[in-house]
Design a protein around this nucleic acid. Structure first.
Lengths: 134, 134
DNA sequence: CGGCATCCGAACTGATACTG
DNA sequence: CAGTATCAGTTCGGATGCCG
């Protein structure tokens, strides 16, 4: 099923078909790489490979394919602006639109919160794990 | 490689191994069902199947397995509290911890923003699609 | 450099069936 | 009701090769 012509979906999964529209956007924004792309772009504009490296520094790294997919989805949703300059070698800059900036700020705030609360989370995890080991 | 004993990972993917810890929590929180669970629990406490139905009403629905996995991960991270009463038939109530409430509020705010901005997103999508059809 | 297309192993997802 | 276990389908993500 899923007659969707070619929504690209990106970032992550798409839930197939029956889904209220805003949930889809929410999933694009909160998708694995969508989150990181938005946060990075909040700081400044990036070129493709540059963005890839920037995300790679924090953790595991995005594959070229996934970054492409993520950026396309976010661009289609109007959150990211793609500026391709017709030069050799090619140069493509990605930046946030106004809409994207609003989303990114909320995402970043969530990321910061998570970072702040890590100690509490780690403690909770230790308690949880011990409880079922014992 | 990937000696991870059994992190359960839940909600979504886990990135295997090399990953700064806060990113993991962020992914649990922003995971497909994590987002929805947190939002629902923000309103009130829920029983397992009740929560499943509540999420099901908005869109596609969670499988039993995914809901279980999501709840376990969030519980381990100290965001959700699980209260299992030893009665027949079993009754298990899920609610947010203080930590969970903080996270949930941010997630909800992001969801509300998304819902508000849907019109802009749809418009951007239409423009994007038309540009490549033409 | 910035993509797109494909093959392919690995991980995630979800319906079903089964236990307590 | 609240899970666990299992099996099959989907997606992820790396590697590779090609194009502008």
């Amino acid at each position: 099923m899923a007659v969707s012509v070619k929504t690209t979906t990106a970032g992550g999964y798409d839930a197939g078909e029956a889904m209220c529209p805003y949930r889809l956007v929410l999933e694009h924004v909160t998708s694995r790489w969508g989150v990181l792309v938005l946060i990075e772009l909040l700081e400044r504009s990036y070129r493709f490979s540059e963005l890839r490296r920037a995300i790679g520094r924090v953790g595991k790294g995005v594959s070229e394919k996934m970054l492409t997919q993520t950026l396309q989805t976010l661009e289609r949703d109007g959150l990211v602006h793609r500026d391709a300059k017709p030069v050799i070698p090619p140069r493509v800059d990605y930046s946030l639109t106004e809409l994207g900036r609003e989303a990114a700020e909320q995402v970043r705030s969530l990321a910061l919160w998570t970072s702040d609360r890590m100690a509490d989370v780690e403690k909770a995890r230790a308690a949880y794990d011990e409880a079922r080991t014992a």
